[in-house]
C-alpha cells in the first residue's frame, strides 16, 4: 500500500500556521494578564482559571462523545474560551459558579450552534453575561477583606492587592462618582476588577505578541478605543480631561475586550471596512452604556451586540471582485 502515490486537487503546498497554532498563540498572549491576576488576587485566581478551563474542556469532550461527533484533537479553542472566561470573572467567585460559566460558554453559546466557527457570539462573553445576570452580587464582588501584616502564605492566598489595602470601589466606580483616578496604578494594574482586566500593561504585552505573530491586526482595537474616546470627549461632560478619558479606557474590561474579545475571528467581520464599522459600533455602544446609562460597565454587552451585527456587516462590506469594480469609461 505504501507504494501508492497520493492524489489530491491543487494546491499541493500548505502554510504551516494551523488553527491550533493560532489558538496556542492566543493562550500565550493571555499568560501575562493571567499571571498578573494571580499576583494581584492570590492563588484563588489561579483556582478560578483552572476551574473554567477544565469545565470548558470537559464540557466540549463530553458533548462530542455524547453527540457522536469527532472530538477535536487539540485545537485548543476550548482552553482559550476557558481562559478568557476566567479573566472576566472576579477572583472571589464561588468555584461552582465559575464551572457553570464554563459549561454555559461551551454548551449553550458554542456547541449547540455547531461548534467551533459556528457560534455567533463570543462564548466567554456570553457566559460572563449569563453569570452577571444570574448572580449580579457575586459577579461584582471585587472587594476582599483587608489583611494588616501579611505572611508569605497569606500573600499567596490573597494576593498583593488585598494586602496593599487598595481594594474597594473600582476605578470606574470612582469615575462615575466624579472622582479622579490614579492612572499609573491602573496602567500597572494594582486595582480591583476581574482577574484579567486590571493590568493594561500585561494586556498590551499579550496583544503586542499577537500583532507580532500576525494573529490579529490593531484595526478593531484601535477603531473601538478611538471611537469610544471620541464619544467620551463629546458626551462625557469633561471635555478633553485626560484623567477622565484615560481612566475610562484603562478601567474596567475595555482593554481586555478590545484586544482579546472583539478580535475573536468567528464573531468579528472579515473585511477591513467591516472591522472598522464593527469597532466604531461597539465603541459607541460602550459609551452609551457607560456614560449615558446608569451602569458602570458595558464592554461585554457592547461586544455581544456587535457580534450580532457581524453577518450584516459582512454582507454590506463585501468587496467587488478584481476587474468588476466599475466599468471604466466603457470598454477599453
Amino acid at each position: 500500500m505504501s507504494d501508492l502515490y497520493n492524489v489530491s486537487a491543487a494546491p499541493h503546498l500548505r502554510y504551516p500556521t494551523k488553527t491550533n497554532t493560532i489558538m496556542r498563540d492566543v493562550i500565550i498572549a493571555l499568560i501575562p494578564a493571567s499571571l498578573f491576576g494571580i499576583y494581584n488576587f492570590g492563588l484563588r485566581a489561579l483556582l478560578v482559571i483552572l476551574t473554567t478551563v477544565l469545565s470548558c474542556t470537559v464540557t466540549e469532550y463530553v458533548y462530542c462523545r455524547l453527540m457522536k461527533k469527532q472530538v477535536n484533537p487539540w485545537d485548543y479553542s476550548d482552553i482559550v474560551t476557558g481562559l478568557l472566561l476566567a479573566l472576566n470573572l472576579p477572583a472571589s467567585i464561588p468555584m461552582w459558579m465559575a464551572a457553570l460559566g464554563g459549561v454555559f460558554a461551551i454548551l449553550i453559546a458554542k456547541m449547540v450552534f455547531g461548534g467551533l466557527g459556528q457560534n455567533f457570539i463570543n462564548p466567554a462573553l456570553a457566559a460572563r453575561v449569563f453569570l452577571f445576570i444570574s448572580f449580579p452580587g457575586r459577579m461584582s464582588a471585587f472587594a476582599l477583606e483587608k489583611i494588616a501584616s501579611p505572611t508569605t502564605k497569606e500573600l499567596l492566598r490573597h494576593g498583593a492587592l488585598v494586602i496593599d489595602g487598595v481594594s474597594g470601589a473600582t476605578p470606574l466606580g470612582q469615575i462615575k462618582a466624579g472622582e479622579t483616578v490614579n492612572l499609573m496604578k491602573m496602567f500597572i494594574g494594582n486595582i480591583g476588577g476581574t482577574i484579567g482586566e486590571t493590568s493594561a500593561l500585561a494586556l498590551l504585552i499579550g496583544a503586542a505578541y499577537l500583532f507580532y505573530r500576525k494573529v490579529i491586526t490593531p484595526i478593531i482595537p484601535l477603531s473601538y478605543i478611538l471611537s469610544f474616546a471620541v464619544f467620551a470627549i463629546i458626551f462625557g461632560g469633561h471635555g478633553f480631561d485626560a484623567n477622565y478619558i484615560l481612566g475610562h479606557i484603562l478601567g474596567g474590561g475595555l482593554l481586555l475586550g478590545a484586544l482579546f474579545m472583539a478580535t475573536d475571528y468567528v464573531t468579528s467581520p472579515i473585511t477591513l471596512k467591516g472591522q472598522v464599522i464593527f469597532g466604531v459600533f461597539i465603541g459607541i455602544m460602550t459609551g452609551i452604556f457607560r456614560i449615558i446609562g446608569t451602569g458602570v460597565e458595558g464592554v461585554s454587552y457592547s461586544i455581544l451586540l456587535g457580534n450580532l451585527l457581524v453577518p450584516l456587516i459582512d454582507n454590506l462590506t463585501r468587496p467587488k471582485a478584481f476587474g468588476k469594480e466599475r466599468v471604466k469609461n466603457g470598454k477599453k
Binding site: R14, T19, S77, L116
Partner: peptide
C-alpha cells in the same frame, strides 16, 4: 504530502480573503 491533512472547522479568520488576488 503537505496537502494530506484533515479539514477542520472554518474559524472565519479571513486569511483566504486577504490573500485572494481577485478579492473574493
Amino acid at each position: 504530502d503537505d496537502a494530506a491533512v484533515q479539514e477542520t472547522a472554518c474559524i472565519s479568520c479571513g486569511r483566504c480573503y486577504f490573500k485572494c488576488p481577485l478579492n473574493l
